[in-house]
Design a protein around this nucleic acid. Structure first.
Lengths: 192, 192, 192, 192
DNA sequence: TATGAATGAGATTTCATTCAT
DNA sequence: CATGAATGAAATCTCATTCAT
């Protein structure tokens, strides 16, 4: 079994559950079933795992979108599917997005951090451009993909972090963000 | 002199400058000019200061909005002023904003998060409702104020977090978020 | 209300319940309903309360003996009543006897510590001498009173400290110590 | 070299010399020649060393008895030798004995106290049973071994705890406890 | 590569004591 | 006499990191 991946997986799980500060390297190695010293063969410190985590998380969201979004559906449905993908991942991995920020804030500017999120940005960018091509929405600004992701992630976090118990609350928030997004993107009313 | 406030102020200053992990309680008490033990009369740990900081930050943003937004201007201008307020505070307290987010998310004092941000939510809610009254925008969803804040904060963080030197980038992002917001709110085109 | 006594009473209760080390002066003053600083008007330190406690405890045991022992009963019954008195107090104030030792061991030899226990020794000494006079037992050694007290206290502590749950165990131990004592004192078989 | 044993040995030495409160964990690790953190690999706190110390002390007393008691001597002599063993160890480890007692009573690790003293109880139990077999004493109660130990330990502590300079006092107490015990055990008068 | 006991610097935390009110 | 917030020295404890195996 790949120990590097085991570390990343363990770190994601523990950071999600206990937060960055309360997770000790001792916890990570225990969870990953490796020896204390082995950690340092793959990473130089706790924070140095963060970029790898961010990368994995970005891919998880992208793949979830890829899986859930059906390009044959009307555009508003696709938008709903897209938000659903983010909500699903956020629910499973709680606060990882905030932790990524924490990682950035705690580090002395990691190079090309943004590029780690590129696969996700590119996917959403393509998604929106195709919608433009298909005349579902008017041409978009270059910042739009990032804003779409940021918005949906923020709402998803608020849905699961603070209101966790009631699933209806999450559904309301998701509906609201879908509407908000469709308006922001000036989506043509679907013919349905 | 209020020692509790001195601690919060010192913590904001030091967390901004050195980050959460590199700031020691010893640093905070030194900065606040109090004894080591006095810290524990007011807070139980370093992280337990975060909610108080979040409260202060929410008020800072609200007050900045209150100051910058001119209700006599056309609505799109007001939206620009509102985003400007968030960008101003985010720029000044770069890391604190991410830290509030992540720091709080990393602890278990999260429960009252929503109430901490209430003053800000209420301000934006009133702001939008007045815009509805004045027919600048159609009636809004209850989740809209939170989405507006979340969106603008996310974009502002992305603008300033990554050590980007170019101020033009921030300006672009701000312009993009203003446009995005106006569309999402279905603001009537200003007459200008 | 007498604050000095309030402190002693609070200390007995807390030392019994939490032990010497885990009891803080802050706990004592809280329990005694006085201010932190007030403690130092009556005692110079936590340990300096110990002699006062020992004094109170010795008197408690003596008074309990005085109350329970009926001089008109046959001697073996009186011995049983005497042990009963010790068991009663030990049960109520758990480990105080051991704590008194701890106090001694933690201090740099308190003067005339033994004299604090004098009232109890004297009572038992008188009790035994009367039994000698009444020919219940042959003449006793000067150390006997202390040995009687030490033995009964030790057994009582073992009864309540480690075997606490089962009341039958305590009863067995008490019966055993009564028999043991009667033999040690060479008590004449009672006529019953 | 076994670090756990080094810690226990160092703790015994230092608690004897300086008492429980004045002995710091820093002192123990220095004496044991290990690093500060290593202490916590073996014990969770200063007090949690006490049960281990108690175990060692019980074994010391048992071994001393085993060495001093000569089964070929008349029974009263053996009893004297047995008490002598306790007095010897108590004199050598004055404060430790009281500390074991009080220290253990002050914590919550008490549960296994009886099992810790088991080796000693078993030795005395065997000793007394052999005396029964050899008709030196009539059959004994199950509690008797514990009472014998408790009594002799209490008297020995009283003899040495209060800094009494006069060795004659200790000798008197020992003689008294021997007589007391022989009577309690209903030992047949030796033929001498 | 992999291990995990050991390290020890440096962090957090405690709490007896003081002192201005 | 009484108070209790403030103190800060000194303690406990943590945990990232190392290194001999």
């Amino acid at each position: 079994m790949n120990k590097r991946e085991a570390i990343i997986e363990a770190a994601i799980e523990l950071f999600s559950a206990k937060g960055l500060n309360k997770t000790k390297i001792a916890d990570i190695v225990k969870q990953a079933n490796i020896a204390q010293g082995t950690f340092y063969l793959y990473f130089s410190s706790k924070l140095s795992v963060m970029p790898a985590i961010a990368e994995v998380m970005a891919l998880k969201i992208r793949d979830e979108m890829d899986e859930q979004v059906d390009r044959h559906e009307p555009f508003p449905v696709q938008i709903e599917q897209l938000t659903q993908a983010v909500f699903t991942i956020t629910k499973e991995y709680q606060t990882i997005q905030a932790l990524v920020y924490a990682g950035i804030a705690s580090t002395d500017h990691i190079r090309n951090w943004e590029s780690i999120y590129d696969p996700l940005y590119i996917w959403v960018d393509n998604f929106l451009k195709q919608a433009v091509t298909e005349k579902f929405i008017p041409p978009i600004n270059g910042e739009t993909p990032k804003m779409v992701i940021a918005l949906v992630e923020s709402v998803a976090e608020q849905a699961y972090l603070y209101d966790e118990v009631d699933p209806q609350v999450a559904r309301n928030k998701q509906a609201a963000v879908v509407t908000f997004l469709l308006q922001a993107l000036k989506a043509s009313p679907s013919i349905s």
